[in-house]
Design a protein around this nucleic acid. Structure first.
Lengths: 195, 195
DNA sequence: CTAAAAAAATGAACTAGATTAAGAAATAAG
DNA sequence: CTTATTTCTTAATCTAGTTCATTTTTTTAG
């Protein structure tokens, strides 16, 4: 059967759930398989779901007028991903969310989540805590972008998310860190030869 | 007496409040006057409160090892400000929050807010919606930092927050936009002479 | 009103990182 | 396997933005 243990454990890191809560939550989950290079969100189409990654890897990114893309977020197992701005305001997306590997996801629809939150304060609380944590995280990223050099940003990310560094293409990582793939290549060489 | 109308109106943009809700909320508000250049948050001291600006202007900023400061956020009337990471995790702050003008603020303590949220789902919901909006905003800022040139970032900010541009010192704005004050000066001259 | 301090402007020299282009290596998918 | 495609590397050139040093302007607080 479907494995909802991981996503429930994720929630239980923030709020305790009894069997009834669990049933309520799992009843709104939709499971989906996604092939590598497939999009689960695309610009101009409203992002209707939050996506929990059960297996696989994703990235969300923005493509600007010049065709250059900027990675907003990566997500591997046990992470949520979406075009959050599109999702919470239910307006057309500006991002792509693309599978970097064949993947299995568990999705929850905006309307279902809002209903759930209205009916069960535990979930309202869960989504508050997650949003607050996400905001604090995003602020740290702003700080890192403002204050650090390209090399320092790479080293910091590598220290914090070694599994992501190994798993995603270098051009995607470069675009997350705000530099060109060529420059990231140069940094890696510099770091490798130095030690 | 104290004027709580503005802060209550702010909340009511997200959730409806009856008189009892209003009383519950205002009972935990602490009012404070702050002089220009005074800090309401400092590194290494835990940020115990969220601050609502009734009158005045603030900025939060980080000072790195080289003594260079990076502005994270501005706040004028009707905005909230804090070291959010310190506040929600109740860990020592890494930011300064400084008054740019003499100010009057209304503060709510972390513990009081958590109690309020547990007892009244309307406030849980309010803080969820605010956190989600803040997160979406922070993501847009990351995007803007990654994708745009210094001049584009300035023009964008100026279009979105003209009142802040006029009100805060240029060095603070430069440090928010991720450039040196000298370069911002150059951009402004370029834009002024071009038109 | 005025002296002192803070903020902004200017310009010359410099550099981190981008751009371009081409070849090498890795990976995917028949 | 094997070939087509995608990804990564390398190196030369270029530029947006920084640094540093000085001057001018604005603000502040007695």
């Amino acid at each position: 059967m479907d494995n909802f243990d991981d996503i429930l454990d994720n929630i239980k890191r923030y709020v305790p759930l009894n069997k009834k809560d669990e049933a309520e939550f799992t009843s709104i989950i939709q499971v989906k398989k996604v092939k590598r290079k497939e999009f689960i969100v695309e610009p101009d189409r409203t992002c209707t779901h939050q996506t929990y990654v059960l297996k696989g890897a994703f990235r969300s990114y923005f493509v600007n007028e010049d065709g250059i893309d900027h990675t907003i977020q990566f997500a591997i197992e046990d992470w949520f991903i979406s075009d959050f701005n599109s999702y919470i305001n239910q307006v057309p997306a500006s991002l792509y969310v693309e599978a970097l590997e064949d993947a299995v996801v568990q999705q929850i629809a905006f309307g279902d989540v809002e209903d759930l939150c209205q009916n069960n304060p535990k979930f309202e609380r869960f989504f508050r805590l997650v949003a607050q944590k996400s905001f604090a995280f995003a602020q740290r990223r702003v700080l890192s972008n403002l204050g650090k050099s390209a090399q320092e940003r790479y080293i910091e990310f590598q220290g914090q998310y070694p599994s992501i560094v190994q798993r995603v293409p270098q051009y995607a990582l470069a675009s997350y860190l705000g530099m060109t793939p060529e420059f990231l290549s140069k940094i890696r060489k510099r770091l490798a030869t130095k030690s």
